[in-house]
């Protein structure tokens, strides 16, 4: 096969793959942003520090008080997380593999580990940040339950990742 023919074949293959992934006729049904503020709290503390997904260079951005701010006149550690920042984080989350997220929701949460956000957080896929949410922990349950469409908001306020020294604890 000549190099020209090879290039053409590769080009056709690439277009075929792209058209499969970008099927305009498909629709997605992602979880609502109505109760997302509780989930946003978990993402802010576990994923959204400036050295991780609170960095403006990341495609999956998490906004919040202790990380990246949405508005130029806000400072890190300044005003509390704003509603607009929660919405921006929501938009960021649902833009990550929305087809898989939609599938998880339609299956009532089954296969949630197949959605890349959960897979990365549990380090089931390579994740530069390693394990950020231990499977079955309250924080993990918060995210996974939201993805399934039945948010367990009581799990969203507990952060039990590792032996984190708490205020008042000596170390």
């Amino acid at each position: 096969m000549s190099s020209k023919a090879l290039l053409m074949a590769l080009g056709v293959a690439a277009v075929a793959c792209a058209s499969d992934a970008l099927d305009a006729s498909s629709s997605v049904d992602v979880p609502s942003g109505k109760d997302f503020a509780a989930v946003s709290l978990v993402l802010e503390s576990n994923c959204g520090t400036l050295d991780c997904h609170g960095h403006p260079a990341r495609n999956f951005r998490v906004y919040g008080k202790q990380g990246l701010r949405l508005f130029g006149d806000d400072t890190v550690g300044g005003a509390d997380t704003r509603d607009d920042e929660v919405r921006a984080t929501y938009q960021s989350v649902i833009s990550i593999d929305p087809e898989a997220l939609s599938r998880v929701r339609s299956q009532g949460g089954a296969g949630v580990e197949g959605w890349i956000v959960v897979a990365k957080a549990r380090a089931l896929q390579y994740h530069e940040g390693g394990v950020r949410l231990l499977a079955g922990s309250p924080a993990d349950t918060c995210l996974a339950s939201w993805a399934s469409g039945t948010l367990d908001s009581s799990s969203c306020f507990t952060d039990d990742f590792g032996p984190i020294p708490r205020a008042g604890e000596s170390w």
Partner: peptide, 24 residues
């Protein structure tokens, strides 16, 4: 207040001036 999840340079995040993506 927050943990350092990977950054070996404190000053990467603790850069001046404080703003939407730097803590000062």
């Amino acid at each position: 207040i927050s943990a350092d999840f990977r950054e070996t340079s404190c000053n990467a995040c603790h850069a001046d001036p404080a703003g939407p993506s730097a803590v000062g």
